[in-house]
Write a protein that binds this DNA or RNA. Structure first.
Length: 963
RNA sequence: GGGGAUGUGGCGGAAUUGGUAGACGCGCUAGCCUUAGGAGCUAGUGAGGCAACUCGUGUAGGUUCAAGUCCUAUCAUCCCCACCA
């Protein structure tokens, strides 16, 4: 018998797999296809880390599982080779990125193979090779030809260290993603001319299709938020004494009667024109300061600031004259860069109005609904005004009424008579019901509550309007309380913290929030008031009607806005695909003709950015000078390179046809292989995924591919964290090197199995130094089991434990098959461990070379194979196979073996477990109940009691309800 | 501020439709065995109690014959977005 020695068998099998090409995919195979992959790797000098080990093992297990099931399974591999780290390394050391990639990537080959990942190396891709980035450039051209590319000057994030433009997502907490240390400077803004992809043209369809994706829910949500669709209207506000107008975007046109001022972003184009002489100095100062500030600094100061322009606009809804302010809480890049401020129903406008003493008008009342007593159809409606009287004493306690026989405990409240003044009515109620007479009115909740409900005692629908008033108890002075016969209640003072436990009337939540927070801007839906002809409408009705009416006057239109901006693809850097554009003085910017693609990135010796906004490519003078493709005159190439997200937005499709020199891919092959069946990763869940979807949709539109979505299933897996729960980081030096774990003697199999076993994939494993030894022990037990079997004597007699062996094996097959399918790898491994334990227990009775044991062990080895491929192939061979376990070996389970003769039934008395009985599988309810009652312990608990109910759950439990 | 997720032994985590809480692994305890190893095998391991039994899934209520699971409130941790009108 041999001992389990991963150090010996793993390199052996890696070599065999390499030589025999087990993982080479036939893209034209007639088998059903399966393609599973993880986000491709950025090659760095450091080699793979534990996070890579996690990510690629997840997709590898999936691909191997399908390969064993008979699919033509494809686990592609590639390198996201362009990007800043290699370039910065070049700046530092003078080693060109081309050279460092050539040094680094072969090292990765060895590491990937040592991890046992079943990649198809024949189809390897790398984004920095001209044969690949030709297609990055081609996509740029194709988008250009379809009107999806434009050039514009924009204020852009600028990293003062790298001297380059940054994308929004590369700015983290106000600093460059690569320089986010405490001593690093914040990012700046600079105006730069750059190329954009019009992804916003696809915003709606990207959003609309998101719901149907089989993706991790949180990622879908992040995509939706990123797109950030909001529907509303653009409304023109005419300027007073001028023909000019200001266009605002709002999602709440229903609140237009509450719009008491306008606010423009400091960068708004009209600011200069409308500012009055008197205000000019101050406005200029404010605008200058706002522009100089980075957006991050603006966000840091939470306090709203702004200045009055001196100009007025006319509210088109009511012709009121309202002042125009500028403030930096209004962003220039969203909507029209101008808003109508509704301080009555918007938190931000409210803060601003309070600070600068601008009028606040409420035009929306809350509408609440009593779900327990919905209005009944056909009953008359009776309207009523009601006051809720919140009385607070000196100790901060609140006066409530508690009914003695009813389930009712709440504030003092009562009807307001016709023509009666609200505060007077409230005081009267307080005095009548509680006796307190010395109360002082403090404030009224800024919006009323409306509710329609069925009042059973009067058999009518009540339509009530509730005002909430706060009073202060000045003294304990009381009058005599004369209660009517049905009024059986008493006043109770309660703490503020107990307010939420009052009887749940509709709107209680608003009232408590108003009491707790002092002021509370109601931004919800409801009923419109003080809005002229629209009074009484619901906010959604008013929204529609107001926009329609304003549209008729030609001053409004419905409008959808997206938070998402167009995709800036220009980078002032060297290490990327050159943007295929030629600038001609005569003809302007022209595309490089397709036949001249790729535009090869020239070799340089100096990689530092020029610092003038142009990238290092400006230094390649020979390369720079070129003839204009249109007029043939002297021209210059674009010196910007493409954002690396462009390269990674289509790589998954390039895998379908990686060597094609004539096209990005052959549509026939792509249509067979798309979409990617399984994709996973622990980063880039928003931007990369959205860009990949955008580009795929584009290729679908131009007829290159049938499926508009690239990824059928996406699993956003968790990261591996250190044993104390913190993240691994270079600076802490607490990283785990997968190759070191392997070379320590545990092997890749034990490492892979541990990573997949430690936690659900979405959660991410926590590194436990004892974890790999644990899965190693499991593999070792499996090894010894098979070895012992292989060396055992033939067992002629029928196996006495046959049924149990088969049941253990088939239970395991079922669980593992279903769990891998559903991405529950941790419980799949647990099932295999359980099976090994079962086999150890069973082999005590009888173990030897017969068909049953052989079959059982074979299925176990096959199920282990996706997780621990090396040991599986070795043991598969031990079991007498000459072909690899990694193809067409997946076992099937048979339900008939899963049935046992007897089942254990739990017996409860009043819901408490009292016994466990064994009954035959086909026993009837009566038989089982009888058996249960016969149990001694059960007897002890039911004697002297009457069994009033028996609940029987077939095959599981009996619950005797005794009294 | 907004949105989302998660709270279960000493630890990582299991638990279809509500139906025996703690699968599996780590750690720990005891015993066995031996080529004395980073080994293997067997048994035990939520808490309290001699026991019957009682308590137990962040906290407080509720629904139910029965709640980790459903409802209400609340606390904590983590992640994402962050003045988007």
């Amino acid at each position: 018998m041999q001992r389990y020695n991963p150090k010996e068998i793993e390199p052996k099998w890696a070599k065999i797999w390499d030589e025999t090409g087990v993982y080479t995919t036939d893209l034209n195979s007639s088998r059903p296809k399966y393609i599973g992959m993880s986000m491709f790797n950025y090659p760095s000098g450091a080699g793979i880390h534990i996070g890579h080990a996690m990510n690629y093992t997840i997709s590898d297990v999936k691909a191997r599982f399908k390969r064993q099931q008979g699919y033509e399974s494809y686990h592609p591999v590639g390198w996201d080779a362009f990007g800043l780290p290699a370039e910065n390394y070049a700046i530092k050391t003078g080693v060109s990125p081309q050279e460092s990639m050539a040094n680094i990537i072969p090292g990765y080959h060895k590491q990937y193979k040592a991890m046992g990942w079943s990649n198809d190396w024949e189809k390897e891709i790398a984004t920095h090779l001209p044969e690949y980035y030709k297609w990055s450039q081609w996509i740029f051209c194709e988008m250009y030809r379809h009107g999806l590319v434009y050039q514009d000057s924009r204020m852009q994030w600028w990293c003062p260290i790298d001297n380059t433009v940054l994308a929004n997502e590369q700015v983290i907490d106000g600093k460059c993603w690569r320089h986010d240390g405490p001593d690093d400077p914040p990012v700046e803004k600079r105006e730069i001319k750059q190329w954009f992809f019009k992804i916003t043209d696809y915003a709606d369809e990207l959003l609309e299709a998101t719901d149907r994706l089989d993706w991790t829910e949180s990622v879908k949500l992040a995509q939706k938020n990123w797109i950030g669709k909001s529907s509303g209207a653009e409304i023109d506000f005419a300027l007073e004494n001028s023909s000019k107008k200001i266009k605002v975007f709002t999602t709440r046109p229903d609140t237009i009667f509450g719009a008491t001022f306008l606010v423009l972003a400091p960068e708004h184009e009209l600011v200069q024109q409308i500012t009055g002489e008197e205000q000019k100095a101050e406005v200029d100062k404010y605008v200058k300061a706002a522009i100089a500030k980075s957006e991050v600094e603006r966000q840091e100061s939470k306090e709203k600031t702004g200045v009055f322009t001196g100009a007025y606009a006319i509210n088109p809804a009511n012709d009121e004259k309202i002042p125009i302010w500028i403030a930096d809480y209004v962003l220039t890049g969203y909507g029209t860069g101008a808003i109508m401020a509704v301080p009555g129903h918007d938190q931000r406008d409210n803060e601003f109005a309070k600070k600068y003493d601008l009028p606040i008008i409420e035009t929306v009342e809350a509408y609440t609904f009593d779900e327990e007593n919905p209005p009944k159809k056909g009953k008359p409606n009776t309207k009523r005004n009601v006051a809720i009287c919140v009385v607070k004493d000196k100790e901060g306690k609140f006066l409530t009424l508690k009914w003695n026989k009813l389930d009712w405990h709440n504030f003092v409240m009562g009807g307001v008579e016709e023509g009666e003044e609200l505060i007077k009515a409230a005081k009267r109620e307080i005095a009548e019901e509680t006796g307190y007479t010395d109360v002082e009115f403090k404030s009224r909740m800024p919006f009323a509550l409306n509710s329609v409900f069925y009042a059973a005692h009067k058999d009518v629908n009540r339509d009530i309007r509730v005002d909430v008033l706060l009073f202060k108890l000045k003294s304990d002075k009381k009058q005599e309380v004369k209660l009517e016969a049905h009024e059986d209640f008493e006043p109770v003072w309660i703490e503020q913290s107990k307010l939420r436990s009052l009887h749940p009337i509709g709107g209680l939540d608003y009232i408590v929030r108003w009491i707790e927070e002092g002021d509370y801007v109601y931004a919800g839906e409801g009923r419109v008031i003080d809005s002229g002809e629209y009074d009484g409408l619901s906010t959604s009705e008013a929204r529609e009607k107001i926009v329609t009416d304003l549209e008729k006057q030609g001053v409004a239109e419905e409008k959808v806005n997206y938070r998402m901006r167009d995709w800036s693809v220009s980078r002032q850097r060297y290490w990327g695909a050159p943007i295929p554009i030629i600038y001609c003085k005569k003809c302007g910017p022209k595309l490089v003709p397709d036949e001249d693609l790729p535009v090869i990135l020239p070799e340089l010796t100096d990689f530092t950015p020029t610092g003038d906004g142009r990238g290092p490519l400006a230094r390649a003078e020979d390369w720079l000078k070129v003839d204009c493709p249109k007029c043939g005159g002297p021209a210059e190439r674009e010196t910007d390179t493409l954002d690396t997200y462009v390269d990674s937005s289509f790589y998954m499709l390039r895998y379908f046809d990686p060597r094609n020199q004539e096209a990005i891919f052959d549509s026939k092959i792509a249509n067979k292989w798309a979409p990617i069946d399984f994709y996973n990763g622990g980063d880039h869940a928003t931007a990369h995924m959205l860009y990949a979807r955008f580009v795929t949709r584009f290729l679908n539109k131009i007829g290159k591919i049938n499926n508009p979505e690239p990824f059928k299933q996406f699993l956003f897996n968790g990261k591996v964290s250190a044993s104390d729960g913190s993240a691994f980081s270079k600076s802490k030096g607490n990283g785990i090197d997968p190759l070191e774990i392997i070379s320590q003697g545990y092997g890749a199999d034990a490492l892979r199995t541990y990573l997949m076993f430690a936690a659900p994939l979405e959660l991410g494993a926590r590194w436990d130094p004892q974890g790999v030894p644990g899965t190693y022990r499991f593999l070792n037990r499996l090894w010894n089991l098979v070895e012992e079997f292989a060396h055992s004597k033939p067992l002629e007699t029928r196996d006495s434990a046959k049924d149990e062996i088969l049941r253990a094996a088939h239970k395991m097959i079922k669980k593992v098959t279903e769990d891998i399918e559903a991405n529950r790898y941790n419980t799949a491994i647990a099932a295999m461990m359980e099976c090994v334990n079962d086999f150890y227990r069973l082999k005590v009775a009888e173990f030897g070379n017969n068909a049953i044991w052989r079959k059982a062990l074979e299925s176990l080895v096959a199920c282990v194979a996706p997780f621990a491929p090396f040991i599986a192939d070795e043991l598969w061979q031990q079991l007498g196979h000459s072909s690899s376990v990694h193809k067409d070996s997946w076992p099937k389970w048979d339900e008939k073996y899963l049935q046992a003769d007897t089942v254990k039934i739990a017996v409860q008395v009043n819901g408490k477990l009292r016994a466990e009985i064994e009954a035959s599988t086909d026993a009837t309810e009566t038989e089982i109940t009888k058996l249960a009652k016969a149990n001694d312990n059960v007897k002890a608990h039911i004697t002297g009691k009457k069994i009033i109910k028996t609940i029987y759950v077939p095959g599981k439990l009996v619950n005797l309800v005794a009294q």
